[in-house]
C-alpha cells in the first residue's frame, strides 16, 4: 500500500468508522428515526463507550502482530489514530459514569474508586492512558527519543487492567470477557515469543 493511499483514503475512512459508535449513541439519544437507548439509557451509553474503548485498545495492540503476519508495514500508520480513539472512548465511558450515572455525587464516586476493585483498576487504566495520549504527537516523540518507546509499553498493563475490569464487572456470564482475555493472551504471547526467539 502506498503511503499516499493510506493517508488520503484509509486514514479518513478509519476516522469516520471510529466515530460511528459515538454517532450511533447520539442518534439514539435524540431518538432519531424512532430509535432509542432502551429502558436503561445511562447503562446503555456507558456500556457502549466502554466496549468500544476496549475493542480499540485491543485493536491497537493487534497492529504490530498483524503488520508482521500480513507483511503490511503501512498498518503501523493507523496505530496512533486507533490509540487516540481508544483513549477518547475510555474517557467518554468514565465521564458517563461520573456525570450521568453518579450525577457528580463525589462521596459515592471517591468511595467507589477506593473500595471497588473493578472500579479502582478501571480508573488506574484510564490514568495510565493519559500520558500516552499527551505524548502522542510527533514533537513529543522527538523530544522523548528512546524513552518514548519505553513509556508507550504502558499499553500492555493498560490492556490487562481493562480486560480485568470488564471480567470483574460481569455477574456470572464471563464468556465475553474471556474472549477479550484470549485475544489479549495471543497478542501479548506473540510478543514474548518473538522476543525470546530473537535472543
Amino acid at each position: 500500500m502506498k503511503p499516499a493511499v493510506v493517508r488520503r483514503v484509509i486514514k479518513p475512512a478509519l476516522f469516520v468508522a471510529c466515530l460511528l459508535p459515538l454517532l450511533s449513541i447520539l442518534w439514539r439519544a435524540f431518538e432519531l428515526g424512532g430509535s432509542n437507548l432502551g429502558a436503561n439509557p445511562v447503562e446503555q451509553v456507558q456500556d457502549t463507550f466502554g466496549q468500544w474503548g476496549l475493542r480499540l485498545l485491543v485493536t491497537t495492540l493487534a497492529i504490530t502482530p498483524l503488520r508482521d503476519w500480513l507483511n503490511a508495514p503501512w498498518l503501523a500508520m493507523l496505530r496512533r489514530m486507533l490509540g487516540l480513539f481508544a483513549f477518547a472512548y475510555v474517557s467518554l465511558h468514565f465521564l458517563t459514569w461520573l456525570v450521568l450515572d453518579q450525577g457528580l455525587h463525589w462521596p459515592s464516586i471517591l468511595a467507589d474508586i477506593a473500595k471497588r476493585p473493578f472500579i479502582t483498576i478501571g480508573f488506574l487504566a484510564l490514568l495510565m492512558l493519559v500520558p500516552l495520549a499527551v505524548t502522542s504527537t510527533n514533537a513529543m516523540m522527538r523530544r522523548l527519543g528512546r524513552r518514548w518507546k519505553t513509556l508507550h509499553r504502558l499499553i500492555y498493563p493498560i490492556c490487562v487492567l481493562a480486560v480485568w475490569h470488564y471480567y470483574w464487572q460481569v455477574k456470572a456470564d464471563v464468556r465475553e470477557p474471556l474472549v477479550y482475555a484470549s485475544l489479549l493472551g495471543i497478542l501479548l504471547g506473540w510478543r514474548v515469543w518473538k522476543r525470546s526467539s530473537r535472543l
Binding site: V42, D112, K115, P117, F118
Partner: peptide, 22 residues
C-alpha cells in the same frame, strides 16, 4: 450492606431517562 463489587446505597429507577439521578 454493599455488594462486594458495588454500592447498594443508591439506585437507578428505570424509565427516568438519560439525565435522571439515582
Amino acid at each position: 450492606v454493599d455488594h462486594p463489587r458495588w454500592s447498594q446505597a443508591r439506585e437507578r429507577r428505570i424509565g427516568g431517562g438519560l439525565f435522571d439521578s439515582r
